[in-house]
């Protein structure tokens, strides 16, 4: 099966600032991808590139095998729920469904009506009068009822209270189970997406820091604690993500596929949040290994 999303050397420049650079990514189908990173890391830029709202400044991106050109056929296969889940304030809930039916050839009216019914939305209510959670649900309904193959969501839960956040994710996951969608959703909090996602992309400072299957990431990252040691003396296949030292003790967070055999280390597993925070907390030099850690790069 081909990747639902593939980026190669993808970059986007606003003026002289790169909002996204050197982005290489391949997302297999059928996944729920969490795109995680601090605000301003380039998450929105990436998603907007993926739906063709922006054109790349460098490299290329393919969505469902074609470049996001905005053609009608591709539009129908990709759903997008934008940041702050925009809706037409003056239009009613029913008007929104009508809009969706008019603008999408594959519109699933039964699904849309059923969802609105189940969510307890009053069809005559104007979207401007809905709560943030209801508006997000309405936007999600529009995104789902067009029956896309890939659904992209830009910080869909950021502005929701915890209950609405949970309901939104429950609902989204239900749709994923029902429709075999591939989903990419961005968030600046890992905890938001931890349960919902099975694939993680960490974006910091306009660059992809790490990407992969979550279970695989958890299985290959370890925290090593032991007597103080120079990171250069670690085995070559152990890639240091972060390190901290006291005068006697060293703590490393390493990524390696091989088992850790050195008996001097106490090895512990990481939670997803720890793992992401380790990548986010890296200093600028560490994030660009090609510049500051040539030895490591050569060894890999």
């Amino acid at each position: 099966m081909t990747a639902v999303l593939r980026a190669q050397g993808l970059g986007k420049k606003y003026g002289r600032r790169w909002a996204l650079s050197d982005c290489d990514l391949e997302v297999p189908p059928g996944r729920v991808v969490g795109l995680v990173g601090p605000n301003g890391a380039g998450k929105s830029t990436f998603l907007n590139l993926a739906v063709g709202m922006l054109a790349p400044s460098a490299g290329e991106i393919e969505v469902l095998g074609t470049r996001p050109t905005g053609r009608r056929a591709q539009r129908a296969k990709v759903g997008f729920v934008g940041q702050d889940t925009p809706t037409y304030a003056a239009l009613s809930v029913a008007d929104h469904l009508r809009l969706g039916a008019h603008l999408n050839p594959g519109w699933d009216a039964a699904l849309a009506d059923d969802r609105v019914d189940r969510l307890g939305l009053d069809p005559r209510q104007r979207a401007g009068r809905l709560s943030g959670g209801q508006r997000a649900q309405l936007a999600l309904t529009l995104g789902i009822a067009k029956r896309p193959e890939l659904l992209l969501l830009d910080e869909p839960v950021a502005s929701l209270d915890p209950l609405a956040r949970r309901e939104f994710l429950q609902d989204l996951m239900g749709a994923v189970a029902d429709q075999q969608l591939s989903v990419v959703l961005s968030s600046h909090l890992v905890s938001d997406v931890e349960r919902a996602c099975d694939y993680l992309v960490v974006l910091v400072d306009s660059r992809v820091q790490v990407a992969g299957d979550i279970e695989n990431l958890l299985a290959t990252h370890h925290r090593l604690t032991g007597p103080r040691r120079d990171p250069a003396k670690l085995p070559a296949e152990q890639l240091v993500v972060s390190e901290s030292h006291t005068d006697r003790q060293s703590t490393f967070l390493v990524r390696t596929d091989a088992p850790i055999l050195d008996p001097a280390w106490e090895v512990s597993q990481l939670g997803l949040e720890d793992l992401v925070l380790a990548y986010m907390g890296r200093s600028a030099e560490q994030r660009n290994p090609s510049r500051s850690r040539p030895t490591l790069e050569a060894l890999r």
Partner: peptide, 17 residues
Amino acid sequence: EAGTHRLVWNQSITRTR
């Protein structure tokens, strides 16, 4: 201004249309 272009442009319709 309201961001609704992001809603409507992601229905199955081209911007030109």
